[in-house]
Computed example of a mutant assay.
Amino acid sequence: MRVPRVAVLVGVVAVVAALPVGVPALSGATPSGDVAVADVVPEPLCTPADPVLDELSGLAVLGGRLFATPDAGDDESVVELDSECAVVQRFPSPVDPYDVEDLAAGPDGRLWLADFGDNTAVRQTIALISLDPEDGSGELHRLTYPDRAHDAEAVLVGADGVPVIVTKSLFGASGIYRPVRGRTIADLGSPGPTALEKVGSLTLGPTDTPGGPIPGGSSTLITGGAVSVDGTVAAVRTYTDVHLFRVSDGDLAGALVSGPDLRIPVPGEPQGEAVAFTEHGDLLTGSETVTVGATTVRPPITMWPGVTALLDDRAVVDDPKTGTVDEEAGTGDATVPAVVVTAGIIIVAAAAGFAGWRGFRRRDRRRRVR
């Protein structure tokens, strides 16, 4: 979801004006200070130059091949990238989607497009769309929430094939959903729908990591997810951080409900939504392109090496800027001022509402997945 720049600027003014005198903004440890910060040094991988990825929303690695998808727009193809991030192949979506927000690699050797975007929370159904990267074939699998419509940008497919959706909540905890009775991607009807069940909730942040489009809210809004090739580590990201979860006994949903074990700050991504694991256990993150004045900023896809091994090593630091080791990570007591968080949430809601209205108007004339 692209947040209008005017809304971001208004948010900056509102949040700064709301800060009480003498209270530092976004400093020190996070309120969820029991989550240790991972000690990992990022390496720029490559920078996408093709305009199709100006709104990069999802990444996936399958069979050693790197795939990416943009947010819904004029070109909703899945693209394959080479080691320099050049597009080497395009795969049109097998089904005309409504709003694809994430991309997952399934244990079945297919890519799974998360057609979950719903800024205005009006959709009767959402969908997973399968895509065979060998021949471009695929199917539509409609899904229905058990409670009400939600906006979502994160899908994770476990090693057992069970897909898990994490919603993008502006207020309070995000919901964690999976197909009823733990159905796998192989069990999903086409076109469906298959009913979802809520298995829990997840709250991330706030953190003090810089970046993202919304001051005070970027570190709490969930924008993507991924699972390691062996299924033992899951990642859920916000605009500013990637949170890692140890998956025990293949229970992906249970791992998310239990909360994260480590956090990787991803500073400087202006609108980070994409995350994936390589087959070697490295983490990849990516951001949408942004325009500031007359300057277009194209962030690189960044690799964070050896991330899956971190959950075994428990290597943490208390200050990712200096690399100072903290043997008792997460014991800080400084918190983000509540007024900053509140102001940020209000701005997030206003900005997302405006963006959702524009997106709804844009897509109203297009055939919708129902």
Rank of each mutant, 00 (worst) to 15 (best):
P48F: 11
P48T: 13
P48E: 10
D50W: 09
P51Y: 06
P51S: 04
V52W: 04
L53K: 08
D54W: 07
S57L: 14
G58V: 03
L59A: 11
A60P: 03
A60F: 07
V61D: 06
V61R: 05
L62S: 14
G63M: 08
G64N: 08
L66N: 13
A68V: 11
A68C: 10
T69C: 04
T69S: 09
P70G: 13
P70E: 12
D71H: 15
D71Y: 09
A72H: 04
A72D: 04
G73T: 06
D74T: 08
D74M: 06
E76G: 00
E76C: 00
E76D: 02
V78D: 07
V79N: 01
V79L: 05
D82E: 05
D82I: 02
S83P: 01
E84G: 02
V87M: 08
V87P: 04
V87T: 07
V87N: 08
Q89E: 14
R90K: 15
R90N: 14
R90F: 15
F91S: 01
P92M: 04
P94S: 15
D96I: 00
D96E: 03
D96S: 01
D96H: 00
P97G: 12
V100D: 00
E101I: 06
E101K: 06
D102W: 00
L103N: 11
A104N: 01
A105K: 14
G106M: 12
G106F: 12
G106P: 11
G109K: 10
G109D: 11
G109T: 14
R110E: 09
L111F: 06
L111M: 09
L113V: 10
L113S: 05
A114E: 03
D115K: 12
D115E: 13
D115L: 11
D115T: 13
F116L: 15
N119Y: 00
A121G: 04
R123M: 05
R123D: 07
Q124M: 05
T125G: 10
T125L: 10
I126K: 08
A127H: 06
L128T: 05
S130R: 05
S130W: 02
S130C: 09
S130T: 12
S130K: 03
L131R: 09
E134F: 04
E134K: 10
E134H: 08
